[in-house]
Computed example of a mutant assay.
Amino acid sequence: MTMNRNTTKAKLGRSVQVRLVADLKKSQAYYRDVLGCTVDDWGHAERDELLFILQQAMSPDDVKPNRVSRKRPDYPTDWEGPEHAWDSFIYISWEDLDLYVEEVRARGGIIAIEPFVGAHGKWEFKNAYIQDLDGYNLVLGAMREVAAG
Protein backbone atom coordinates (compact mmCIF):
# COMPACT_ATOMS: atom_id res chain seq x y z
CA MET A 1 0.00 0.00 0.00
CA THR A 2 1.38 3.41 -0.92
CA MET A 3 0.59 6.54 1.01
CA ASN A 4 -0.01 9.84 -0.68
CA ARG A 5 2.17 12.19 1.38
CA ASN A 6 0.19 15.19 0.17
CA THR A 7 -3.05 14.11 1.82
CA THR A 8 -2.02 11.91 4.74
CA LYS A 9 -0.68 13.46 7.92
CA ALA A 10 0.27 11.84 11.17
CA LYS A 11 -1.69 13.13 14.13
CA LEU A 12 0.42 14.32 17.04
CA GLY A 13 -0.73 13.89 20.62
CA ARG A 14 -0.61 16.10 23.67
CA SER A 15 2.69 17.80 24.33
CA VAL A 16 4.24 17.17 27.74
CA GLN A 17 7.04 19.26 29.18
CA VAL A 18 9.85 17.60 31.10
CA ARG A 19 11.53 19.50 33.93
CA LEU A 20 14.88 18.58 35.42
CA VAL A 21 14.64 19.61 39.07
CA ALA A 22 17.19 19.94 41.86
CA ASP A 23 15.06 18.15 44.49
CA LEU A 24 12.32 15.88 43.12
CA LYS A 25 10.43 15.49 46.42
CA LYS A 26 10.35 19.26 47.06
CA SER A 27 9.27 19.94 43.47
CA GLN A 28 6.52 17.32 43.64
CA ALA A 29 5.24 18.96 46.84
CA TYR A 30 5.35 22.47 45.26
CA TYR A 31 3.50 21.41 42.12
CA ARG A 32 0.92 19.60 44.26
CA ASP A 33 0.49 21.91 47.26
CA VAL A 34 1.14 25.30 45.64
CA LEU A 35 0.32 24.96 41.94
CA GLY A 36 -2.65 22.67 42.61
CA CYS A 37 -1.55 19.77 40.42
CA THR A 38 -2.21 16.10 40.94
CA VAL A 39 1.25 14.57 41.34
CA ASP A 40 2.14 10.89 41.21
CA ASP A 41 5.25 8.97 42.23
CA TRP A 42 6.48 8.94 38.63
CA GLY A 43 6.78 12.73 38.68
CA HIS A 44 3.73 13.52 36.55
CA ALA A 45 2.25 16.86 37.67
CA GLU A 46 -1.13 17.51 36.06
CA ARG A 47 -3.90 20.04 36.33
CA ASP A 48 -6.63 20.42 33.72
CA GLU A 49 -4.77 20.38 30.36
CA LEU A 50 -1.37 21.16 31.91
CA LEU A 51 1.09 18.28 32.29
CA PHE A 52 4.72 18.24 33.36
CA ILE A 53 7.03 15.33 34.05
CA LEU A 54 9.36 16.25 36.90
CA GLN A 55 12.68 14.39 36.82
CA GLN A 56 15.54 14.46 39.29
CA ALA A 57 18.58 16.19 37.79
CA MET A 58 21.94 14.44 38.14
CA SER A 59 23.37 17.70 39.48
CA PRO A 60 21.90 21.11 40.38
CA ASP A 61 24.05 22.45 37.52
CA ASP A 62 21.82 20.50 35.11
CA VAL A 63 18.76 22.56 36.08
CA LYS A 64 18.65 25.27 33.42
CA PRO A 65 15.55 27.43 33.09
CA ASN A 66 15.37 29.34 29.82
CA ARG A 67 16.96 32.75 29.53
CA VAL A 68 15.25 35.72 27.94
CA SER A 69 15.02 35.46 24.16
CA ARG A 70 16.47 37.85 21.61
CA LYS A 71 14.17 40.64 20.39
CA ARG A 72 12.66 40.09 16.95
CA PRO A 73 11.54 43.04 14.81
CA ASP A 74 9.59 40.90 12.30
CA TYR A 75 6.54 39.86 14.34
CA PRO A 76 3.20 40.81 12.74
CA THR A 77 2.77 43.67 15.27
CA ASP A 78 5.17 46.10 16.93
CA TRP A 79 5.88 43.56 19.71
CA GLU A 80 9.48 42.37 19.63
CA GLY A 81 9.28 39.57 22.18
CA PRO A 82 9.03 39.05 25.91
CA GLU A 83 10.98 41.08 28.44
CA HIS A 84 11.53 38.06 30.67
CA ALA A 85 12.31 34.38 30.15
CA TRP A 86 9.55 31.90 29.38
CA ASP A 87 9.82 28.20 30.20
CA SER A 88 6.14 27.37 29.75
CA PHE A 89 3.35 29.45 28.31
CA ILE A 90 -0.02 28.46 29.72
CA TYR A 91 -3.17 29.70 28.06
CA ILE A 92 -5.79 30.75 30.60
CA SER A 93 -9.01 32.71 30.42
CA TRP A 94 -8.94 36.43 31.18
CA GLU A 95 -11.05 35.96 34.30
CA ASP A 96 -9.19 32.89 35.57
CA LEU A 97 -5.72 34.46 35.38
CA ASP A 98 -6.15 36.68 38.45
CA LEU A 99 -8.03 33.92 40.25
CA TYR A 100 -5.18 31.45 39.74
CA VAL A 101 -2.49 33.98 40.72
CA GLU A 102 -4.34 34.58 43.99
CA GLU A 103 -4.74 30.83 44.54
CA VAL A 104 -0.97 30.33 44.12
CA ARG A 105 -0.18 33.37 46.29
CA ALA A 106 -2.43 32.08 49.09
CA ARG A 107 -0.55 28.77 49.04
CA GLY A 108 2.82 30.52 49.37
CA GLY A 109 3.79 30.38 45.70
CA ILE A 110 6.37 32.51 43.95
CA ILE A 111 4.69 35.26 41.91
CA ALA A 112 7.70 36.43 39.91
CA ILE A 113 5.79 39.08 37.94
CA GLU A 114 2.36 40.32 38.93
CA PRO A 115 -0.41 40.35 36.31
CA PHE A 116 0.02 43.08 33.71
CA VAL A 117 -1.91 44.13 30.62
CA GLY A 118 -0.63 45.21 27.22
CA ALA A 119 -1.68 45.25 23.58
CA HIS A 120 -0.47 43.93 20.24
CA GLY A 121 -2.38 45.30 17.28
CA LYS A 122 -6.05 44.45 17.76
CA TRP A 123 -5.32 42.12 20.69
CA GLU A 124 -5.12 42.92 24.38
CA PHE A 125 -3.15 40.50 26.54
CA LYS A 126 -2.75 39.86 30.24
CA ASN A 127 0.22 37.89 31.55
CA ALA A 128 1.62 36.88 34.92
CA TYR A 129 4.74 34.88 35.78
CA ILE A 130 4.80 32.17 38.42
CA GLN A 131 8.07 30.46 39.28
CA ASP A 132 8.69 27.02 40.62
CA LEU A 133 11.42 26.16 43.12
CA ASP A 134 14.04 25.79 40.37
CA GLY A 135 13.33 29.16 38.77
CA TYR A 136 11.32 27.88 35.81
CA ASN A 137 8.87 30.59 34.69
CA LEU A 138 5.32 29.47 34.09
CA VAL A 139 3.81 32.32 32.11
CA LEU A 140 0.05 32.62 32.36
CA GLY A 141 -1.33 34.26 29.24
CA ALA A 142 -4.79 35.51 28.33
CA MET A 143 -5.79 37.39 25.18
CA ARG A 144 -8.90 39.08 23.94
CA GLU A 145 -9.75 41.17 20.93
CA VAL A 146 -9.86 44.89 21.64
CA ALA A 147 -13.35 46.24 21.10
CA ALA A 148 -13.54 48.64 18.18
CA GLY A 149 -14.17 52.05 19.58
Rank of each mutant, 00 (worst) to 15 (best):
74 D>H: 12
107 R>Q: 10
11 K>F: 11
135 G>T: 13
94 W>M: 15
87 D>Y: 13
44 H>S: 07
106 A>H: 02
138 L>M: 14
3 M>W: 04
55 Q>K: 11
52 F>E: 06
71 K>A: 15
49 E>D: 15
20 L>V: 04
74 D>K: 01
40 D>A: 02
120 H>M: 14
109 G>R: 13
147 A>K: 12
108 G>E: 05
10 A>M: 11
88 S>C: 12
42 W>I: 09
137 N>P: 04
62 D>C: 07
59 S>R: 02
40 D>M: 02
141 G>S: 15
39 V>N: 05
137 N>D: 04
79 W>D: 14
31 Y>Q: 03
20 L>E: 08
97 L>N: 12
32 R>K: 08
94 W>Y: 09
55 Q>R: 13
123 W>N: 04
109 G>D: 08
20 L>Q: 10
110 I>P: 00
85 A>E: 13
63 V>Y: 07
144 R>H: 10
135 G>Q: 14
78 D>H: 10
31 Y>R: 04
128 A>V: 01
60 P>K: 05
136 Y>S: 09
95 E>I: 13
78 D>F: 12
110 I>W: 01
4 N>K: 09
102 E>A: 14
35 L>V: 00
83 E>R: 09
96 D>Y: 12
137 N>K: 07
39 V>Y: 01
67 R>N: 13
57 A>I: 13
98 D>A: 11
32 R>E: 07
40 D>Y: 06
130 I>M: 11
41 D>G: 14
37 C>Q: 00
109 G>K: 15
134 D>F: 13
9 K>S: 09
81 G>D: 08
119 A>L: 05
127 N>I: 02
107 R>G: 00
90 I>Q: 05
44 H>K: 09
20 L>P: 02
30 Y>I: 01
45 A>P: 01
40 D>S: 01
15 S>G: 02
67 R>L: 15
36 G>M: 01
69 S>C: 15
69 S>N: 12
106 A>M: 06
26 K>T: 02
35 L>Q: 02
69 S>Y: 11
116 F>G: 00
50 L>K: 03
110 I>H: 06
31 Y>G: 03
127 N>H: 03
140 L>T: 06
81 G>E: 07
67 R>H: 15
147 A>W: 00
66 N>F: 11
140 L>S: 12
21 V>T: 06
98 D>H: 04
120 H>D: 15
55 Q>F: 03
22 A>W: 04
19 R>A: 06
71 K>T: 13
62 D>H: 10
109 G>V: 11
8 T>N: 12
8 T>L: 11
101 V>K: 04
73 P>N: 13
138 L>T: 04
132 D>K: 07
41 D>N: 11
76 P>S: 14
24 L>V: 02
94 W>G: 02
22 A>R: 15
45 A>N: 01
33 D>K: 01
46 E>Q: 12
145 E>W: 07
78 D>I: 09
41 D>S: 05
81 G>Q: 10
44 H>C: 00
55 Q>D: 07
8 T>G: 00
92 I>C: 03
103 E>V: 07
72 R>S: 09
88 S>G: 08
139 V>I: 10
125 F>Q: 01
36 G>R: 02
90 I>S: 04
72 R>T: 00
137 N>L: 04
79 W>R: 06
94 W>D: 13
6 N>T: 09
20 L>K: 12
9 K>N: 14
109 G>A: 03
25 K>T: 11
29 A>T: 08
37 C>T: 02
101 V>W: 10
52 F>N: 00
122 K>L: 08
44 H>L: 05
103 E>H: 13
50 L>S: 06
